[in-house]
Amino acid sequence: MAGAAGVGVFMLLAVGCGGAATPGKASPGPSEAVRPAKPLPLKSAPRQASWTDSDDAVHQLRLTPTRLARGADSDLRHVQLDDDLKGQVPYYLTFSYTNTGKGTVDRPDPARNFSVNGADGQAAQQVSLFQSNPMATSSGVPPECRGGSKDTLAPGDSTADCVIFMLPKGAQPATVSYKDDDSGTLLWQVGGAKGGASGGVLPVGKPADGVTADSSRRSVALRITPKGVRTGSLADLSRFDLDADKKKLVPYYVTMQYRNTGSHDLLPSMNNGVMLRSAGGQEAKKLILIDIGGPGVSQCPESVPHEMVKPGATVTECSTHLMEKGDPPVAVVFQGEGEGRSVTWRAKPEGGE
């Protein structure tokens, strides 16, 4: 299971504010007249969690996301952004945390474990800014996220921090999440996110066109229909040798129907391009299970029928995906090959242990 895409801090360069600095004379800083950020409804209940430092020591914290606000792309006009982030919208997450352990915590940094996630389970890109012009008279960091947290937290002490996340225009945050090894994924709901087909996310079960590639790497068109996402049980996988970490997860079975609308034969292996996204921004690709000549997972047949898919023919495939307890899937993604593009549907898991 892959981690959330926005979990790693991406370093941005705060460029010289107001032009090149003259030695001995500070260049003027940027205007502070920025558009006020718009707060979003956020269920900000405190949650107990853990944070692991660089020495692999685990510290107990009580976390409370206190505010999530939508900024404007003009907030970062003095920041040199990578091309893939230009035109995206900044969101400012403010959170507080308390040291609930028995020892002092040095240089705590739980911010990197937070994520802001869209309704399609896509994690926003977390960014961190640093100032490149020491002569500038004003910080390039937006006012929403200035200040800083304490460097040391004694038992019972609290502090606060702010993190900037970038989401594409049209996307809306649906959850704030925190990922750690002990507590799993913690979720806080964000109000105001629209469901349905907004933001390029198709409704549950709606047929859509996609593209895959045949064994000669030629593009082949598909008509894809999601047939369902079912919650399984680890007992279903008892024949397989799963490692300890995988035994803590929940299996989900994704059934998809593919019609070959192209002009070349296909192997029934389109489910290799299927992925689940969770409410907490986690991504889970198809679980590879070694079962040469065996019956596989009876609850999730690999392909029916199990033969070449000729032009005009249809095949139904099922794939197994492992996700954390308490962090259910919200979207199914088909990642096309060749000239294909990704197609995303909302997921509504059925069943359960």
Rank of each mutant, 00 (worst) to 15 (best):
A20M: 11
T22W: 11
P23N: 08
G24T: 01
G24I: 00
A26L: 05
G29Q: 01
G29A: 05
V34K: 14
A37V: 01
R47W: 04
Q48S: 14
W51T: 06
Q60L: 14
T64H: 06
T64Y: 07
T64S: 10
T66P: 02
T66W: 08
A69Y: 02
R70L: 15
G71C: 01
S74R: 08
D75K: 09
R77T: 11
Q80Y: 08
L81Y: 07
L81K: 05
L85N: 03
N99M: 00
T100E: 10
N113P: 01
D120W: 03
A123F: 06
A124P: 04
Q126S: 13
F130R: 12
Q131T: 09
S132N: 14
P134F: 07
A136W: 07
T137F: 08
V141P: 07
R146N: 06
D151C: 13
G156R: 10
D157L: 10
D161V: 03
M166I: 00
L167T: 03
K169Q: 12
K169V: 09
Q172A: 12
Q172R: 12
A174Y: 03
S177K: 03
S177Y: 03
Q189K: 14
G195A: 11
A197W: 05
A208I: 07
G210A: 07
G210I: 01
G210N: 03
T212S: 01
D214Q: 02
R217N: 15
R217G: 08
R218H: 12
A221E: 11
K227I: 05
G232E: 01
D245T: 15
K246Y: 12
K248W: 04
K248N: 14
L249P: 05
V250K: 09
T261R: 02
S263L: 12
L267K: 14
M275C: 05
L276I: 06
A284D: 05
I288M: 15
D291N: 11
S303K: 04
S303C: 10
P311G: 05
T314E: 01
V315T: 01
T320M: 08
H321L: 07
L322A: 03
M323G: 07
K325G: 13
K325E: 13
D327T: 04
D327P: 01
V333D: 04
G336N: 01
E337L: 14
G338R: 04
S342K: 13
S342W: 09
V343G: 04
E350L: 14
G351Q: 10
E353T: 14
